[in-house]
Design a protein around this nucleic acid. Structure first.
Length: 427
RNA sequence: GUGGGUGUAGCUCAGCCGGUAGAGCACUUGGUUGUGGUCCAAGAUGUCGCGGGUUCAAGUCCCGUCACUCACCCCA
């Protein structure tokens, strides 16, 4: 019997065992970020609505029709974050991190973001991202470094099907001219009303329309790659060179466009072919003008958002393929205790605490269960060993340690129980 | 916002031309006095999403509604 309530529409919730995977892959990312010198940030989940309007851009769909915006009791307009970059940059500037040490400021964060979209596979109204940003450097090495971090993370999870799609969107020197050129081309096409409007507001987005009838008309459209200024071209070539040095493969995708206005130069997306319509599992790029857009100093930046929900879907999709998903979650229980009688139960309770103190994941049967039921619990717990303790054993000063996979069982002196199990589990 | 599909046991689903509810898995108990995972036996479990209509009779047909889901759009 469930309650009268259910989670709001489109909210992705995680419960065991999926939630264990969710947590573990997030920890795996923390390790990658740490190795590359990125510091952790814990940030506001809602912001002044204008931060997103000015940062993400009012012409974007995200801002114009997908934000959860509300008024607080003081009449302020607040918005649940639809993405992370604007919040990260706002916090970095507010806390003067860009003045405290060497640039770039290297930070990462994680948590939920919110968009009021119609839910479907891989698209939720409350969804989870890992976000990493390097703020204050134009060096293409930083571009390559951030891409490498994401790429290493996917690899550490055992994902093999991730593709990197790469493009450059130019800068404020070369993009306006290209944009005008593209608009001119697009206006000559026979397109539907909504698309014609988009040509005037955000023409680059028309390029990655998925509809076949639109795609065929787009053949021959001018591409940013052919209109980059010398500085942008040099930057883009250098990034690709560095990715090559790192052994990271990519596909040049001249039609790749991001939906947020702030992106400049390096722009990329991680894509997984097994996922269906929402195949972009992560994306990022440069945003050299964003700081000024939100009233800050001129500070270039680059970063990415990786979708945790979609990464889990990718992991699950791959585990159905021959190569399989290699990522293993730490077991929730390594040793499971089974007691016979009240005295033994009390003694075992202490032993379980001792095992936990020694770093062994331990659990036991509660509620005075009979041996058979308790052994069944031991089996279900996934533990490698069961520790069985009865009056006989206590009298002998030992416990029975059973290897649940093999079935072997032997008496181990109580004083050596923790060290014996620690040793056996470590090999 | 637009279109399609689906709502039956904890899970995955079957249920014909309308005749009063089924399977597999999971669960409980027993076979086993101090031993799980295998095997055998027995058992418990449902507002058939909700509301209305047609009918002697509705899980089944009709209308409405809600939820879920996939796709468009959008993006992580």
């Amino acid at each position: 019997m469930s309650s009268s309530f259910q989670a709001p529409k489109g909210v992705s919730e995680y419960v065991p065992p999926r939630a264990d995977l969710f947590y573990a892959i997030r920890e795996a990312f923390a390790e990658q970020a740490r190795l590359a010198g990125y510091g952790y940030l814990e940030l506001a989940v809602f912001e002044d609505t204008n931060l997103f309007k000015r940062g993400v851009g009012e012409s974007t769909d995200v801002v114009s029709k997908e934000m959860y915006t509300f008024e607080d009791r003081g009449g302020r307009s607040l918005t649940l974050r639809p993405e992370f970059t604007a919040t990260v940059l706002r916090s970095v500037l507010e806390n003067n991190l860009h003045k405290e040490g060497a640039l770039p400021v290297k930070v990462w964060t994680t948590g939920p973001a919110f968009r009021a979209e119609r839910p479907q596979k891989g698209r939720y109204r409350q969804f989870y991202q890992l976000d990493l940003e390097a703020i204050g450097s134009e060096d293409p090495q930083v571009d390559a470094e951030t891409i490498a971090i994401a790429s290493n993370w996917y690899r550490s999870l055992g994902l093999t099907g991730v593709r990197l799609l790469l493009n450059s969107l130019g800068c404020k020197e070369c993009r306006p001219a290209y944009r005008a050129l593209l608009q001119e081309f697009l206006r000559g096409l026979d397109l539907d009303e909504a698309t014609r409007e988009r040509i005037e507001i955000n023409p680059l987005r028309v390029l990655d329309d998925k509809r076949p009838q639109v795609r065929e008309r787009l053949a021959g459209a001018p591409l940013m790659a052919d209109h980059l200024c010398a500085a942008c071209k040099a930057h883009h070539d250098r990034v690709r060179e560095l990715l090559g040095d790192l052994g990271i493969g990519w596909e040049d995708t001249p039609t790749l466009v991001r939906g947020l206005d702030y992106y400049t130069r390096t722009t990329y997306e991680f894509d997984h072919p097994l996922l269906g319509a929402q195949s972009g599992i992560g994306g990022g790029g440069r945003y050299d003008g964003l700081s000024e857009d939100i009233g800050g100093p001129a500070l270039p930046g680059i970063g990415f958002g990786l979708g945790l929900d979609r990464t889990i879907l990718a992991l699950e999709a791959e585990s159905g393929t021959p190569q399989g998903a290699a990522f293993a979650v730490k077991p929730r229980c390594q040793v499971f205790g089974v007691a016979l009688g009240q005295d033994a139960e009390r003694r075992l309770f202490g032993l379980v605490a001792e095992l936990r103190g020694a770093g062994v994941a331990a659990d036991m049967a509660y509620g005075g269960k009979k041996l058979k039921g308790a052994m069944k619990d031991a089996d279900r717990s996934g533990a490698a060993y069961a520790v069985i303790l009865g009056e006989r054993d206590i009298a002998a000063g030992t416990a029975q340690v059973k290897d649940l996979a093999g079935g072997d069982q032997a008496a181990v002196p109580l004083t050596e129980l923790t060290s014996t199990l620690t040793e056996r589990l470590s090999r």
